[in-house]
Design a binder for these strands. Structure first.
Lengths: 216, 216
DNA sequence: GTGCTAGATTTTGTATGCAAAATCTAGCAC
DNA sequence: GTGCTAGATTTTGCATACAAAATCTAGCAC
């Protein structure tokens, strides 16, 4: 038997690269993804790009127009709010499950992620805060042990996409909520963890809705 | 400008074909998906298969082992229950939104889908019932107007996958619940529609859990 | 200047070819 | 019989090639 080492496809690497470019803003909504250019830039042929584009399309990051090419998908305000509605349903489930089952290792990981978030907040670096927030939410979802839930939440980049349009909440408030959430998980209070997560997200959604109201 | 007609990729057709084979049971969990065989069978080359496999992997329908090929994914009992937990969170949201916004056309479509379900139940054809149930749930989710929600629910085949392991509920009971749900939507009672959907799914999940208990 | 058309250019989608990896098979030792 | 090894066979992943579609460009009419 060959090594069971996780060999990585070129299409997977390409997918990761393009995803990174979109998430960091190097590629902006509406940008055309030319196969030849990207292939050259990433040092591969056009073949693995097809699979990468398919994956990104499933994640709503890219729009595929047959025979017309691929472009970075732009999410409307309404779509962002819809994504928040989904997030509000799914992440509290993750928080509750994590609170129920988190062991020593899980709590340590949660603590480390929270500490990283604290650091970025005191450093006042918006991009870093956004990334750390993304990771905190994703860690809680992953620690739930519900693989389908984690795949959905991370695949659809729900957390990151929802945060794309600027910071919507004062970091101090967000940090306090994260601290309370981590506390609820530490004391294995699933009900409380779920409620804190829900309130945390409902508040964020309301702020986004208000923002849209004032400049639609 | 060329026609804006929705041209379909070969990779999209191939994806649909393979998905159909999996959903109908023509391809069973664990089956190896050999590129050469499938390509020959579908009358295409191996190139569009790569993209199709990537899409199916994102939907948790196939497992991709780099350099080792693709196989139809087998979902464990625990994963099925996890999927139900996700479903229980998402579909009530769809039901509530649909109840809020459904107009004449939407209600007519819902009615038609429900009528089709009624027919299959009286015909006592399990496969047809399963398909009609799948469509009823999907229609409600789609009519919510939340595209992200619909994409997630349909992409992950949540409804169909959850039903793969036999019929879990007496059709008469399920039909009664569907009727009540349609009624709540017709009277635009979002709260009631959400609750009925949740109960409907909680009951199904409990039956699945019990089934797993007795033969794990 | 605008609007249209035809040809050239670019870009995409797919089939094919090839090298590397995985799997199968046969032979041998025990 | 089992377990191991080496070579043959199959299968995968990627680059390349090519045809068809889309886009760009130049010329011309007005």
């Amino acid at each position: 038997m060959p090594e069971t080492i996780a060999y990585e496809d070129l299409s997977e690497k390409v997918y990761q690269s393009i995803k990174g470019m979109i998430l960091t803003g190097e590629l902006l909504p509406g940008d055309k993804l030319k196969q030849e250019d990207l292939a050259l830039r990433l040092g591969v042929s056009r073949t693995p790009l097809a699979s990468a584009f398919s994956k990104l399309e499933k994640e709503m990051l890219v729009e595929l127009l047959p025979r017309r090419g691929a472009r970075v998908r732009a999410l409307s305000k309404a779509e962002l709010l819809d994504l928040y509605d989904v997030r509000i349903r799914l992440e509290p489930l993750g928080a509750a499950e994590t609170a129920k089952r988190a062991g020593e290792a899980a709590l340590a990981e949660l603590e480390a992620t929270l500490a990283a978030y604290r650091t970025t907040v005191s450093a006042k670096d918006p991009a870093a805060i956004r990334l750390a927030d993304y990771q905190f939410h994703l860690v809680i979802t992953r620690l739930s042990g519900n693989e389908a839930l984690f795949r959905i939440v991370s695949s659809f980049n729900i957390v990151f996409i929802c945060n794309q349009r600027g910071i919507l909440k004062p970091p101090a408030k967000s940090l306090a909520e994260h601290e309370a959430l981590a506390g609820a998980i530490r004391s294995h209070d699933a009900e409380l963890a779920s409620r804190i997560m829900e309130d945390h997200l409902l508040d964020a959604r309301a702020r986004l809705a208000a923002l849209i109201e004032e400049r639609p």
